[in-house]
Design a protein around this nucleic acid. Structure first.
Lengths: 230, 230
DNA sequence: TCAATCTCGATTGTCGACAATCCGTGGCAA
DNA sequence: TTGCCACGGATTGTCGACAATCGAGATTGA
């Protein structure tokens, strides 16, 4: 609810933007898939005008790529792109941690701990399904980013990049073995925040994200067993 | 030519996007200014459809902010926003330097030095006008970002953020005293790159940007002598 | 005089139709 | 058979008109 950017339905183009972003992120629309204006407009029950505006908005967000006179396609996240994304994320979220250690209130940090308690419960109860690794995890990260009080960071990590992130998560979070160690790392980070040790929090977060990329990278390697197209 | 994102005119919405972005960045359209669809469409010699698409694109790029049924306005860069922007930029460009020290070819680094020679000439010839501080400086930074080989970095720093950056530059680059020391800092950075010392290059770049923000911050303080509106 | 409301002009949101362009297909000739 | 060209369908790009909404100013009542 917090990060998914509620558009408070007012204009049709906005709801189209929202629905398309959602569909792209969840993988309902496959990467590289062609986006037919007439068909989508029909499905959403609106004219082509608002839909085209939504496409342009998503183009600005880099969720779709448009080629003049050839239509729009969902962006494709290849290995290199993902690698670059995680490298940037490592830097940016590390920075967020450093700032958050100075800026977050004690109450907010307590909330963070409560969030982790909640995750722990869910892991124990349902044998560590996927929660902590997919949505809950993102909540955790997003809360810290918010704690940095840096609006630019929130924009970058909370919107555009974040969407790509979620795309990636939906692709790879089916077999999440990493929930337990991830939770421990989260705990360490919050501990560092509570002690107002920004440098440590930054290092821990960077290590955490680096590990996440390592894990995801292996997953992609396995997954890549026969799909190469231009 | 390199960074200004040539749209190779094909669709009217694209040229509108380009022209609007240009006007916003150069300050031709003031911050917070209302963007009237009919008027702009008239001025650009096109219908309102393509223009609306351009506005949606710019909205995705965060160059304009739209309020449903109330039109679009040029985004406003207040002090806090700029401060956040420079903090992020410091981190990101530092990272770019660290990567570039490993990834750039000797030839590219030589080119960088040639670019600085050119800047030096221009400074000496015309008494250090504005070149190095406004456009040439950005070229320098952009070349390094490109040298990082990280596409995500290039997107972030080369497009969205970069545009905001340029907005800021056009606002504050009238009285650039900093061209000489800035050039020296640039030289130091290139030297570190040439020695493949990524850590040093990162530190130097961070210091360079930090100093730039300090300078710009003071400029804003002076400039702020009687303008407060909601 | 002040405040609430009403009305009107202006602006935005939406739609349908038309023009331009591209892609695949089929025919034709070498 | 193979390469090229023309044609047709489909899709995108653009425009003009209409409906919905908002803001500002005038009007009226307390």
């Amino acid at each position: 609810m917090m990060p998914i950017e509620v558009p408070e339905q007012s204009t049709l183009a906005d709801v189209a933007t929202h629905r398309l972003a959602q569909s792209i992120v969840t993988g309902e629309l496959a990467q590289g898939q062609k986006l037919n204006e007439a068909e989508l407009a029909e499905r959403f029950g609106m004219g082509r005008g608002p839909l085209r505006e939504a496409l342009r908005h998503l183009e600005g967000m880099r969720l779709v790529k448009r080629i003049p006179n050839a239509g729009a396609r969902v962006v494709v996240l290849d290995r290199k792109t993902l690698s670059d994304l995680y490298a940037v994320r490592e830097t940016l979220e590390g920075m967020a941690c450093r700032l958050a250690a100075k800026e977050m209130t004690d109450s907010e940090i307590a909330q963070l701990n409560a969030l982790l308690d909640q995750h722990e419960q869910q892991i124990e109860q349902q044998g560590g399904k996927v929660y902590s690794q997919s949505e809950g995890d993102l909540d955790f990260h997003y809360q810290i980013v918010r704690g940095s009080r840096n609006q630019m960071l929130m924009n970058l990590l909370g919107s555009e990049q974040y969407q790509l992130l979620r795309m990636c998560r939906y692709r790879t979070s089916r077999n999440a073995q990493r929930t337990k160690p991830a939770l421990n790392q989260h705990r360490q980070i919050v501990e560092a925040l509570a002690q107002r040790d920004g440098e440590l929090a930054e290092i821990l977060m960077r290590r955490h994200i680096h590990g996440a990329w390592h894990s995801i990278s292996e997953m992609i390697d396995k997954e890549e067993s026969g799909q190469t197209q231009a």
